[in-house]
Every structure is written in C-alpha cells, then in structure tokens.
C-alpha cells in the first residue's frame, strides 16, 4: 500500500517539477525564439532571395548574393570583398594577439596585489567601457590625427610619410580594437589566475622544471580555459566590429561588418547584406570550433568550455 502511494506521489512530484520548470524557463525561451531564432532564420532565408527593384527582398530564390559577395558584380570580378574579409580576419588576429600579450601579465599582476586593491584595479580596467564606443573612437581620432604628438613622433621615426597622421589607417583600427576589447580578456584571465593552484607550480619546480618550464607546464594550462574564453569574447565581436573601422579606418580600412552595414543602409541590398552576415556567422562558428579543438588538445583532453 505504501509502495503504490509512494509512486503516485512521486509521479505527482515529477509533474509538478516539470510544470515548474516550464513556467520558469518560458520567458527566456520565448525571448530567444522571438528575438534570436526567428530573425536568424529570416536572415538565412533572406540571403537566398532576389533584391527587388526598390531594394525589397523577394522571390525567386537565388545565389546571386553569394556571387556578389565573392566579388562578381556588373563590371566583372573584383577582389575587394575578399580583401575586406581577409582584412577582417587579419585585424581580428592581430588585435586578439595584442590583447592577449597585454592582458596576460596585467591579469597576473592584479592577482598579486593586495586583496583590498584588486577591485579598484579591475574597476580601472572596466571603467572605459562604460563610455560609448563612438565617443572612445573619436577620442582615438584626436590622439592619432596628423600634427598630434603621437603622429609627429611616428613621422620623426620615419614610420609614416610626412604630413600624414596615424589616423586614418589599419593601425588606428587595430589600436581601437585592442583598446575596446582589453577588459573582455583581462576579466576571464583574472579569474583564472585567482584560482590558480600554486601547489601545481611547486610540484613542477620540485620535479626539476626550471621557472620557464614550470610556467608552460603548470601555470599556462591552468589559465588556458580563461584565455580561450577571453579569445572568444574578444575575437568574435572584433571580427564583426562596425564602429571602430568605420571611424578610425577612414573608409579605407573597412571590415566585413561595414560591408554588411552598407548593404542594409546606403546600398539597399538586403539579400547581399544577409549573405555577408551569414558568412560572418559561419566564420565565427568555425573559429569557435577550431578554438575548442585547440583547447582540448593543449588541455590534455580536458574539456575547455567556451
């Protein structure tokens, strides 16, 4: 008797839990479906549509947008889009690399500081990102413009031709990206350093690892999850960046984000823009996939969750 009543109450409990789960996850799930899944599907389908005479996407389904994206236009093939894509990849790579080089020692340094000091230092890292991106980009424009101390110095060193500034240029875009995304690398690295197991470092030293080898065998693997998380947080939005190349690139150093934006605004070719956005999405997913593979290999089969 007690057996059956037990199973009944058990089943009722399960039902209640399921209902409870549905209720609590429903708003989030709806939000994601309405504002992410459906628009994404619309975007994907739009990439295969024909651009109407007045710039409205319509039937029939075609691969024209992708052909355009690959560089085939009314005047034959041009490598402009390929260059833009390669430039985007290159800028992302360089900016992410620089961010890693700057963040790694800085994040470590913050963990060695007094506990009371650390929140202040982290605040200093995060604070600039509370300002609007556009305003910060304008700030860099002023710093890098011709006849400014930095530009004059670069001229004096012979890095740039006379009477030109460091802005607008690819270099200015790189600087803008690095500056923009630095906090997104420092924060995950900081938390990785904060829970670093010092005993592992001591064990490595005890087992005949020189300080340099101890770093690569005991410190680096422990910070790898934080580092990879930071790489994703930096590289993904950097790849699709619009404001920085728009303002600091001066129209010459555009990235794929600008290409997409132009199609949706001035050029009024939504299917073309959608195809570009799709390309960005695919490139990003491939990048994340490769990073995960790398993380698994370097992390010794350990799942590095990104």
């Amino acid at each position: 008797m007690s057996q059956s009543s037990f199973t009944i109450s058990q089943r009722r409990l399960q039902l209640r839990e399921t209902l409870h789960l549905l209720w609590t996850t429903a708003p989030g799930a709806l939000w994601i479906i309405i504002f992410l899944v459906l628009p994404s599907l619309y975007l994907v389908s739009m990439a295969f549509m024909t651009n109407g005479t007045y710039g409205q996407p319509g039937m029939p389904l075609t691969l024209d947008s992708f052909r355009q994206l690959a560089g085939f236009g009314f005047l034959g093939w041009s490598p402009g889009n390929i260059y833009t894509l390669l430039r985007s990849l290159w800028q992302t790579l360089v900016a992410t690399g620089l961010v890693v080089i700057l963040s790694y020692p800085l994040a470590y340094y913050i963990t060695t500081c007094r506990v009371s000091l650390r929140p202040i230092m982290l605040l200093a890292v995060v604070l600039p990102s509370w300002t609007n991106q556009v305003i910060r980009a304008f700030g860099w424009m002023n710093l890098l413009a011709p006849e400014t101390p930095l530009s004059n110095f670069a001229q004096w060193m012979g890095w740039i031709p006379p009477h030109l500034g460091l802005f607008p240029s690819n270099f200015a875009v790189t600087i803008g990206l690095v500056y923009n995304f630095l906090p997104f690398m420092i924060l995950p690295l900081y938390s990785a350093f904060e829970k670093l197991d010092v005993h592992l470092v001591e064990a490595a030293r005890d087992l005949y690892a020189s300080p340099v080898k101890a770093f690569w065998t005991a410190v680096f693997p422990q910070t790898l999850p934080g580092l990879l998380a930071g790489v994703v947080l930096v590289a993904v939005p950097a790849f699709g960046m619009y404001v920085v190349p728009e303002l600091l690139g001066g129209g010459r150093s555009t990235m794929i984000g600008n290409l997409v934006a132009t199609q949706f605004t001035g050029a009024s070719n939504w299917p073309y823009g959608a195809a570009g956005a799709l390309l960005m999405l695919v490139a990003t997913l491939v990048g994340i996939f490769l990073l995960r593979r790398l993380g698994k290999r370097v992390g010794g089969g350990e799942e590095v969750v990104i």
């Binding site: 197991d197 005993h199 592992l200 001591e202 064990a203 490595a204 005890d206 087992l207 065998t217 005991a218 693997p221 422990q222 790898l224 992390g299 010794g300 089969g301 350990e302």
Partner: peptide
C-alpha cells in the same frame, strides 16, 4: 635531487 609527495598530491589535472 629531492622530490616531494605533497599533502594535496598536486597531480597535474591536464595530464593523464
């Protein structure tokens, strides 16, 4: 030429 067995063992989690 000294090795230690640590209290926490300190085995490397990323190595088998």
């Amino acid at each position: 030429s000294i090795n230690t067995v640590f209290q926490s063992y300190a085995l490397f989690p990323h190595l088998n």
